[in-house]
């Protein structure tokens, strides 16, 4: 993992240490606190709780700068609750060790057990040590999605609801706001609009960002599903479509995460009790997911041009909308 080695000794680390002494029985301090790179919308820190004769590796997820939270994000306290509920239902998740409270003085966030494994999509689809894991990974992801979608709604914290139609309308607004006419996007919007799933779908817990890059993988298979920031209530097939979109394939073999087929994913989902999946319904969500990635790239341009973020990184992401157009054409008007 790409790590920034910054040892911090300030109010933050002092308060975190005091918090961990209260939350972890036997802990007398913390060690090796460092910020991990990645995740612009949340900070991730790794550290150890240490005591007499023990060390425990932990991860802190925290709102940037302590308390800023993204618009569509569920909020860190709810995220922690969802991780706990999913873990209890058999979804591979780290144990939640502590949810931060205002009195802790560390901001908003939570502490979970550190899990060893690979998260880099490029390595997961390519490295030999994951060759065995790849054979069953798409099936396993389907099974795990079914478990998530089975969580009783009454057990969940309050979450926003986003139906297929609402997602489509929201996306269309964002596309119009960016201003650039994109005939391929217009075609995709029209395709989605005329094929909106007609039968009302009973809302389920949707993870919202279940994809290669948010999974911890070991040589034996899936160890955890991370990043519940975009969890919401909606059409569960959204999760199956999202893991299949091109940006998460990292040049790997197979549409599902770059490591499996749609058929394996769906077979796992049905075997896990998720119910029968209509392949056209899956494709609808794949097109919507793909388009939403492209619209985000377009929005990056807006924030670059307006001066909100003039970095080269931002500018280059804006130039990736054309990649998304080719993905959409492969889906909507396949050639060869």
């Amino acid at each position: 993992m790409n790590e920034q080695v910054t040892v911090v000794r300030d109010d933050f680390s002092t308060h975190l240490e005091a918090t961990i002494k209260r939350a972890v029985p036997g802990a007398t301090g913390i060690a090796h606190l460092r910020r991990l790179s990645g995740g612009a919308s949340q900070e991730t820190w790794s550290f150890e709780a240490v005591g007499r004769g023990f060390t425990r590796k932990l991860i802190l997820r925290r709102a940037p700068g302590g308390d800023r939270v993204h618009d569509r994000a569920v909020g860190l306290e709810k995220e922690a609750a969802l991780i706990g509920l999913a873990r209890a239902a058999g979804v591979p998740e780290p144990e939640v060790v502590h949810v931060l409270e205002p009195g802790d003085g560390v901001g908003r966030g939570f502490v979970v057990a550190f899990l060893e494994g690979e998260t880099l999509g490029r390595k997961i689809v390519r490295d030999d040590i994951f060759a065995e894991a790849r054979k069953t990974l798409a099936h396993r992801c389907g099974e795990v999605m079914a478990k998530i979608h089975h969580l009783p709604l009454s057990s969940l914290p309050p979450l926003r609801t986003a139906t297929a139609e609402e997602r489509l309308n929201e996306l269309h607004q964002n596309y119009k706001m960016a201003g650039t006419p994109r005939p391929v996007f217009a075609l995709a919007f029209e395709w989605l609009r005329t094929r909106l799933p007609k039968a009302p779908v009973p809302p389920k817990l949707v993870h919202g960002d279940f994809r290669n890059g948010n999974l911890i993988i070991g040589p034996e298979g899936l160890r955890a599903v991370l990043d519940w920031e975009l969890a919401h209530l909606g059409d569960p097939i959204e999760d199956l479509g999202w893991i299949c979109i091109a940006p998460w394939r990292f040049s790997g073999e197979g549409p599902a995460g770059g490591f499996g087929t749609r058929e394996q994913l769906v077979a796992g989902y049905e075997a896990g009790g998720g119910g029968k999946v209509d392949m056209e319904h899956l494709k609808w969500w794949e097109v919507l997911g793909s388009l939403s990635w492209g619209v985000s790239c377009g929005a990056m341009f807006l924030s670059f041009r307006s001066g909100v973020d003039r970095t080269i990184e931002r500018a280059m992401i804006a130039r990736r909308a054309s990649e998304n157009e080719i993905d959409l054409l492969h889906l909507l008007a396949p050639r060869g």
Binding site: S322, E325, I326
Partner: peptide
């Protein structure tokens, strides 16, 4: 649309596998 998109991606990202 295919022709236009292929021309755009050939400038933006010629190593992109789907391209």
């Amino acid at each position: 649309l295919w022709a236009t998109t292929i021309e755009k991606v050939s400038v933006d990202q010629p190593q992109y596998a789907p391209y």
